[in-house]
Simulated assay, not measured.
Amino acid sequence: MPREKGQKVVASNRRARHDYHLEDTYEAGLVLVGTEVKSLRQGRASLVDGFVDIEDHEAWLHGVHIPEYTQGTWTNHSARRKRKLLLNRDELEKIERKVNEKGFTIVPVSLYFKDGRAKVEIALAKGKKTWDKRHALAERQADREKEQALGRRLKGMD
């Protein structure tokens, strides 16, 4: 069977960009069981409630929902189990230092296959306040209106 090439996104956490200021992003491997990989290849996962916790100098992914494989038998996995992340020691120490000192949290941003291997993109994030979210929405709306006005002007409608 030929090796997969490229990147195939399985799930992305759009809410993370809305709720947090994302600082640094890292790519981490995942330790999965066979039925989880098969379920991911079907394109089924949810990162909405996910977060990363560091325990004993190891990173663990909690709250990510990978549904049971439909054709799995008694060997099926539990949908919300914690999964180990594979990171370089330097990256892990840097992340751990920032989380402990500055009050950052770690959230999963996207889950994808890269050259046939399951990867998760995680980000160091600080929570946004409610007014930050409103400000971001207003800014996006103003940019959209500006683009529409420019488009109308170029078409000669104004």
Rank of each mutant, 00 (worst) to 15 (best):
T70W: 10
A79H: 03
D49A: 15
L47V: 10
R144M: 12
E55A: 09
D56Q: 06
G72Q: 07
A136F: 10
A123P: 02
K82Q: 04
T130F: 14
N100C: 11
P67N: 00
D49I: 14
E68T: 08
G103Q: 07
R89G: 10
V99I: 13
G116Q: 02
K119C: 09
D49C: 15
V107I: 08
K98A: 14
G116C: 00
S46M: 14
D115G: 15
A59I: 00
L86Y: 03
G127R: 13
R89E: 08
V99H: 00
A138M: 04
E145V: 05
A136I: 15
K126Y: 05
L124P: 04
L85W: 01
V52C: 03
Q71S: 11
K133R: 11
K82C: 05
K129N: 01
K129T: 01
R134Q: 15
E121A: 07
D56G: 12
T70G: 14
G72P: 06
I66P: 01
G103A: 04
I54Q: 01
K133N: 10
L92T: 00
H65C: 05
L47I: 11
P108L: 09
V64M: 04
I95K: 00
V109Q: 02
G43K: 12
E93A: 06
E145H: 06
H77S: 09
E91R: 04
H135Q: 12
D56Y: 06
D132P: 01
R97S: 04
G43W: 10
K129M: 02
L61I: 06
K98P: 15
R89N: 08
T75N: 11
K94G: 11
E68H: 10
T70E: 15
R89M: 07
K119F: 03
A123Q: 00
K84W: 04
W74F: 00
A142M: 06
R89T: 14
R117S: 14
W74N: 10
N88Y: 11
H65N: 03
E145L: 04
H135G: 14
I95S: 05
N76V: 10
L86N: 05
I95T: 03
F113C: 14
E55C: 09
V99C: 09
W74G: 08
V109D: 01
V109H: 02
K98C: 13
Y69V: 08
R97A: 03
L87M: 09
